[in-house]
Every structure is written in structure tokens, then in C-alpha cells.
Design a protein around this nucleic acid. Structure first.
Lengths: 347, 347
DNA sequence: TGTTAGCACTCACTAATCACGAGTGCTAAA
DNA sequence: TTTAGCACTCGTGATTAGTGAGTGCTAACA
């Protein structure tokens, strides 16, 4: 598909205009723009051709033109000039990383919030997978005779905790011994391998030292059953209400259902990891509820081969250029910020 | 205000009808009901009187009647027969408490979900204030040379953790000693008094044993700065979209803003604690965005003088009777379930 | 005296009609 | 190749008319 320069210009202006106004753009209004020195008739002819190529559409016979999905795709692939962010935007972003926040979850959550606030779209951030994190320390804190809290701290500072029932017949000394064994055996073990190692290596060892070791193993193995899905952090879930394309409450509901369930979104965002910026436009999402939205995902690597990803969900009529710049900047900052957590400068 | 039996009957039926259909109810359709043996003309006369008393309203001159806020208030105060829950409902509720869940947050979150799912309204649950919880154990887990995780476990099994920067010049032995001191001095201290005690009692003691104790105190005091607001747990935030009164996206947005910010809702729900079921209808909420919704709150005591509360937010046209029954049942169950956590049967 | 039948009246809602205007496609002239 | 001109399309908004569910009032009835 070869377009003349004039066609490129016209296509670009139409899409830019539509992104701003959400209104079909007509030949006459275009011809009035100062960077368009052609008459409306000429533009009409070009529009006709662009429509034949499938880049534009009409909402009805005599309406102005609207970009088609293919049009957006072309725009994104060929027309997008990586527009630099405004100073104001940059400084706002820096503010997330300015005060030294000390928890990963915090940084991630705040990134999501800023991202949605700056774009007015919905943002989704997935922190680095912590299944690969290694156990730093295991603690058991008895609460009373029947129950105790098990705590696992990873090398990234992530804390998992779970209450469990103390198997009968276990005395405080047993627990103390158990903690010692667990720390000896499990320190340095990645979370994913925890259950496995528990049953294979630790079990044997506990057998020798602890009465009722099987009950204890059982109780503990459950604790280590860490949820498979990492948590998605959302920002501006409600922002879609501000988009005219979702004035229809039923459409909004359908969209919200997909967002809230996370089932569909999670793999999409997860699989981005490591492959730069990805853009899914409208029906490319393969989901009825997402047919009028675009999903832009970016991933950010952190030290140690891990990576997280962030995404923006907005109407297909989205400020692609701005969103991409934002994602680029923020993903780099996140890389830097989170890498400090993953930097394993053990003693 | 004295109503005849017939007026009571008619008011009741009108409100019940409107709650179901969300449509103004007219005299003719009422007269057709089998438990209403009066002609439409008679009903019209009664309606006229009820309207004069301010219990009913018309949406326009020749429309059917709709309950006024005063009408709902009367209905709630005098007409509501505490209708027993259906078996199906009861068994669904039991299912929350059936599998022995071991974390407070879990129970609370699931209650909120079930509540919203069963009512199709939005539910809000506030767990018992844990500011009064007592420290059970303090742990410090060094991650590397610069940072460490501080963990505080309370007697209810609540775990707070925070990363902090290790003041320079502090060696592992210092930390170990510090943990011992903190546990000695702070065990049994309610969370609210933590900071105070830290500065007053613990500081003196640390001074004697730890180098750079002032930096350490500073770092640690920050950690103990536990958020003032307990977390609200929501269920079915989106359910309001299903209510015809919120077909208007602007109204929906206003409502969602109030819900999401939590500022307004928190004190309302918090202050319920200990005073049974409270019902706020429409403008009684004193908030423009909440003028078309009712908020029903209930509190549930747990052992040790604590209490939590749960709330349902729905349109003023709400199934009051059902919601109240549900809240009653669930608050009792929550009382029971959470009391086991607060039961301080220490060794 | 309370209840009901009858009737005129109101008003939201829907569908139909119309004028307007922003847009198109086509043709012919520049 | 570009543009001016023109007939045509169609969404939008205003207006109108018909419909029906509802009311209030009056007069008759039990």
C-alpha cells in the first residue's frame, strides 16, 4: 500500500483531529486548516481513495470520515512521530520517584495512579513476578495455643504471611526447632520451588527432629501455596466513564466486567514482558467487550532477568503518541526504581 | 400522623411495588391486586390523602405515585416486617463461614463480596479497628547492608510490615539486641500507643545498649506510624450500574467519586459501631451525590469491646426488608467468626 | 357517610414530519 | 490535476399529533 505525501498528511490530520474531538471530520473543515492548502473537493477525492484503501470509514452515507481500525494501525505503524513529553508531564512523573518509597507495591501502585491521572484512561501495572524471589527468612509467631502466623520474607522485601492451626502435640520448643530447620533449608529457595522442596528435602529432615512432623508439613505446605497470579494494579478504572464512546451504560458495563474479572487482561499484560511496546487496536483484542478500545502495553526489565509490565486501556481513539511516550518514560523509571529492590547485594 | 389500616395497606403495597418495578404505581393497577378489594377511585382518594401527608409523590400531574423520602422513612420505621430470609440465602451465607478461613481480612472481604452479590447493591465492610490490637511480636529481617524489613505481628494475627533503611554503623548484633529489647518492651502494647512508648520508654533503654540508637528510633518510629484509617472493603462497586436510577452516566460518576474517595463514607460507617442498624435515606445522607441512595449500616461487636461495621449502599428504592435481614444475619456471623481471632487465650 | 362509576383533563412517550446543515459524489471548467 | 458548483444524503433538533395510563372531581349508590 503506497500513499502519496498528500494522502499521508490528510490521513494524519484526520486521525489527529478525530482523536481530539471524537467527531467525524469533513472535507470542508479540513480545508480550512492552515497546513492544508487544498480545496475541500480535492480532499474529498483523497478521502475517497483513503476510504477505498480501508483506512477511513463513514458513519453514514453523507457523514465525515472516521479512522478505521486499519487506519489506526497504519497511523501507529507509520505516522506516529515519537513526540517528546512536555516539561510539566516529565516533572509530574519524576515526582513518583522523587520521594524514596520503600515498598515495591507502593511504587507500582503509584505508577498506575499517575499514569491514569495523566492520560485520563485506565492504567494497569503488573509488578515483577515474585515467584522467582528467594526466601530470605522464615518466621513462625505463635498467637495462642491453637494458631500461629507463618511469615516468609523474600530477598526483595516482599512479605507473605498466613495464619495456620498448630497441629496438636507440638510444643514451643518444637516450633523453635522447626523455624531453625526451615531457615537452614529454605533460605535462598525461589518461592516457586518452595512446596516441592518442602516435601522432598525438608520433610526428611523434620522427620528426625519433630513429633507430628507430617501434620506440620501439611499445614506449612498450604501456606506456601502462593497465588499463581500476581496482582494487577489498576489506576483510573472509572476513567472510561469520561470517554464519549462509553456513554452507553451497557457498553460500559461490558467493559468493566472484563476489566474487573482480570482473567482476560492478565495473560495479555503478562505476555508482554520483555518485548517492548505492543499495541492492540479494537478487534485485535479478540474480545467483544474490548472491540472499541486499544490496549498499549510496555514492559520494564529489572535486574536479574525479571520484568514487569504496564498498560494503558483507552478508546481506539486514543492519544497514541502521548501514551507511548509516557509508557516509555515510566517503564524506564520503573526499571531503575525497582532494580534497586532486586539488586541482591547480600552480605 | 395517624393512618387508617387501609392507608397503611395501600402505602405498603405501593412501596413494595415500586421497589420491585421502579415504575410509578397507579390506582388502577393497584385495584387489580387480589389483596386490594377497593375500587381504583377509592384508592385514588387514599392516595390523595397519603400525598397530602407527604408520604407519596407524583413525578408529574397525571402520573402514578412514587414513595417520597418521608414515605420510605415511614415504611422503614413502621411498616417493615422483619421478613425471614429464604433458605437459599441462608445457606449461601453459611458458605462464607463454612470453610475455616484463617485471616481476618479474608473473612471481611468475602463478606463484602457475598453481601453485594446477594443484594445487587454495593456493600462496604469495615473490620474491627486494629489500633487497639496488642503487639505480639516484633521482627527485623535484614535484606542487605542498607535495608531491612520490620515486621509487627499483633495478637489478632494482623501483620504489619515496612521496609526501612538501616542507619549506618549498625551491625547485625545491634539489630539482634534491638529486636530483643523491642520484644521485651513492646509486647502487649496496643498499636496506638506504640509510637509514644517507643519514644518514652524504649528510647531510654536503647540508649544504653545500641550505638546510633537515635537514628534507629527515628527509622522505627516511622514504621509504627500505622495508617489512621482502617481499610474499607467494598463489594460490587459496579452494581450501581444495574440500577435504573443510575442510567445517567453523570449521576453514576458523581456517586462513584464519593464511593471511591472514601472520605465521606468512612466516618459514616465508622460511627455506626455499636449502635445497631442505622438507615439513612436519600437526602438524610447530606450529600448531593448520595441524594438518591440509601445507606444501611450495621455493626458487629467482637470479643474485647471492639466492633466492626458493614453497610449496604443502594438506591432509595431498596429492598429494605431483605437488606436488613441480611445485615442482621451476617453481622451476627461476623461477630462470631471474628471473635475467635480476638479471643486472647494466651498461654 | 363511605364507596364507586363516569368523565374530563393532564402529560410522558412515541412516531411522523419538516427544515437545516454539514457532509458527500459527480461533472465540467480552469 | 485541481477546483467550483450542484444535487443528493442523512443525522439532528424542533414541532406536531395520537395514545394511554394516570389523575381529580362530581354524582350516584349502598
Amino acid at each position: 500500500m503506497m500513499l502519496t505525501d498528500r494522502q499521508l498528511l490528510i490521513l494524519q490530520v484526520i486521525i489527529d483531529d478525530f482523536i481530539r474531538s471524537a467527531q467525524p471530520v469533513g472535507s470542508r473543515s479540513l480545508s480550512k486548516k492552515e497546513n492544508i492548502p487544498f480545496s475541500s473537493a480535492t480532499i474529498r477525492n483523497e478521502m475517497y481513495d483513503l476510504e477505498e484503501m480501508g483506512l477511513l470509514e463513514k458513519t453514514h452515507t453523507s457523514s465525515g470520515r472516521v479512522p478505521s481500525e486499519k487506519g489506526y494501525r497504519f497511523y501507529v505503524d507509520h505516522l506516529l512521530s515519537p513526540q517528546a513529553l512536555k516539561k510539566k508531564d516529565m516533572s509530574q512523573i519524576q515526582s513518583i520517584f522523587a520521594d524514596r518509597i520503600l515498598e515495591i507495591e507502593n511504587v507500582v501502585q503509584r505508577s498506575a495512579e499517575i499514569l491514569s491521572q495523566m492520560t485520563n484512561y485506565t492504567s494497569i501495572v503488573l509488578g515483577p513476578d515474585h515467584h522467582e524471589n528467594k526466601v530470605k527468612s522464615v518466621q513462625i509467631i505463635p498467637l495462642n495455643l491453637e494458631s500461629a502466623i507463618a511469615i516468609i520474607v523474600t530477598d526483595t522485601g516482599h512479605v507473605e504471611n498466613k495464619r495456620f492451626t498448630i497441629p496438636p502435640g507440638l510444643n514451643p520448643e518444637d516450633i523453635e526447632r522447626m523455624v531453625k530447620i526451615l531457615n537452614d533449608k529454605l533460605t535462598g529457595t525461589p518461592l516457586v520451588e518452595l512446596q516441592d522442596k518442602m516435601y522432598k528435602e525438608v520433610a526428611l529432615f523434620l522427620k528426625r527432629h519433630i513429633a507430628n512432623y507430617d501434620l506440620m508439613i501439611e499445614a506449612f505446605a498450604q501456606i506456601m501455596n502462593i497465588p499463581v497470579h500476581d496482582k494487577l494494579f489498576f489506576g483510573g478504572k472509572m476513567n472510561m466513564m469520561n470517554q464519549p464512546e462509553f456513554n452507553d451504560i451497557d457498553k460500559l458495563r461490558m467493559l468493566m466486567d472484563v476489566i474487573d474479572s482480570e482473567d482476560y487482561l492478565y495473560p495479555l499484560i503478562k505476555e508482554t514482558s520483555g518485548s517492548g511496546i505492543q499495541i492492540r487496536i479494537g478487534k485485535e483484542n479478540n474480545n467483544e467487550a474490548l472491540k472499541d478500545v486499544s490496549l498499549i502495553t510496555a514492559s520494564f526489565p529489572v535486574i536479574g532477568g525479571q520484568s514487569g509490565s504496564l498498560a494503558i486501556l483507552g478508546p481506539t481513539r486514543m492519544e497514541y503518541s502521548r501514551v507511548i511516550s509516557l509508557l516509555n518514560v515510566i517503564s524506564m523509571d520503573l526499571s531503575k526504581a525497582l532494580s534497586t529492590f532486586y539488586d541482591r547485594d547480600d552480605k
